[in-house]
Amino acid sequence: MVILSLDTSSRAMSVALLQDDRVLGEWCTNTQHHHSVRLMPAVRQLMAEVGVTPRALSAVAVAKGPGSYTGVRIGVTTAKTMAWALDIPLVGVSTLQVLAANVPDFPGLVVPLFDARRQRVYAGVYRCTRGEVTAVRPDRVLPVADLVAELAATGEAVAVVGDDAARFYDAFAVGLGERLWLAPPELGIPRAACLARLARQRLLAGAVDAVHEFAPAYLQASEAERKAAAGELRVAGSGRERGTGAAAGGDGDG
């Protein structure tokens, strides 16, 4: 069984090939540059170097978010299209779970996170025990202060994982004191090899995703949908502008 795994949901871009329980190869960069341009060439190069053809793939695994909306869409679209084109199973895994899997074993809670701006984070609460990565709480987007308060109330040791974690160090340190462990930078990047391992576990358990229905886990509605739901519906710019103008601005995630 050969699994191709890809993650473009954050600053990092990672691609890996897992044959049964052996990592054939992994490619990982952490520069937020042109995931759209670099993803397929990276896949092609990695597959060529380890001698795997598209037809030899058994499944495609993808980090389904949360993360950059655009980034997640590039990975998810690529993965579901490849799975459909090659008629092989698709397995989506939470990007936060992939990040948590960087900590194989920890006596306490593992908290992977990404910055969601405005003092909020995309965060998960996991338990990592001898390679098993189990969600204690569902992935959420929430104010960092709320997350810290919730973790402080557990009384447990907390490992915070993620490239953006250092940015919130003070908030965590004040709330958790000696019980905080900020994982080192090399563990703060989601790794496609970890993603492939989690996907393989799900695959062996028969838990594959339906290709057509598969969509990113954004964890929040778009700004326009939130405003509409809140009754703040205002008329945007003109209807069908291309490339420039009102319709092209405002609601992205940068």
Binding site: Y69, V235, A247
Partner: peptide, 12 residues
Amino acid sequence: RFGGVVPEVASR
């Protein structure tokens, strides 16, 4: 209902 194409909604 938005009175025009919302890029993020369209992409989704």
